[in-house]
Amino acid sequence: MSEFLSALWRYPFLQYALWAGLLASVSCGVVGSLVVVRRISYLAGAIAHSVLAGLGAARWMQVVLGWQWAHPLLGAVVAALLAAAVMGLVSLKAREREDTVVSALWAVGMAVGLMFMAATPGYATDLMAYLFGDILMVTPQQLWVMAGLDLVVVGLVVVFYHPLLMVCFDEEFARLRGLKVELWFLLLLGLVALTVVILAAVVGLVMVIALLTLPAGIAARWGHRLGGIMAGAVVLSAVFTSLGLGLSYGPDLPAGACIIVLAGAAYLAAAALVRPR
């Protein structure tokens, strides 16, 4: 750990990595709390995995079609929002077969991504970084994108806190109050989609779901109000990403995996210490 701290002063890539973890924690804690109280972590997982289709397609367009503007990050945002819209509509329409359809979309999204990657000449190492996360490869440009997405996500949640709370607490009542419940649900999934893209750079698409739910899950054991749980989850998430990064540096372990193991251990410890309400 001390080795990490001294290296942190010397190497900009470590500073970028630390910033990436902190920036990701903001959206992660805020949106993760909504995911936990609304119990849609399964939908969030499906959105995260199907983002691979967008990454693969964007890279294929860049290399094969020569469309330079088709950056994988742009592909990820488009794919995540598209996946959120499709999953949201499926969840709203196909009530009894929801889990079947969502699992199918989950796997088909990944399959499409793999096919695009296979059809693209050259190694797709940076796409693997999106899949399993490589926080040490984060660039300053990516940090700006993450900060921008953070601003959008947190801004929307702050402005629409009350209607989001209403829809999560009691959809039926919200409908009677004249809220367009379906649109608010789609907005919530859109926020999840943007958060997934932010987190993908830190822990990778495959492990996004853990970082989205574990800090909020721990905070929910103590918090009695949604706003408090969000704040607690942001802090916990910042601790896990920073500490995970630091612990992984010395023994040269994957940072994303360390972050997730840390979060998982903390969740288990919290579960053992505090009885659920």
């Binding site: 109280v37 629409f160 009350h162 209607p163 709370l165 209403m166 999560c168 607490f169 009691d170 039926e172 009542f173 919200a174 109050r177 004249g178 809220l179 929910a220 918090g223 009695h224 109000r225 949604l226 408090g228 749980i229 659920p276 309400r277």
Partner: peptide, 27 residues
């Protein structure tokens, strides 16, 4: 219909009856 463990204060729950379309989205 309502999750008894939902993290919300009593006042926040009752305020939901004051919000909605045409009534504003902030108490």
């Amino acid at each position: 219909q309502v999750d008894p463990a939902f993290p919300v204060s009593v006042l926040e729950v009752v305020l939901m009856g004051r919000l909605g379309a045409g009534r504003g989205l902030r108490p």
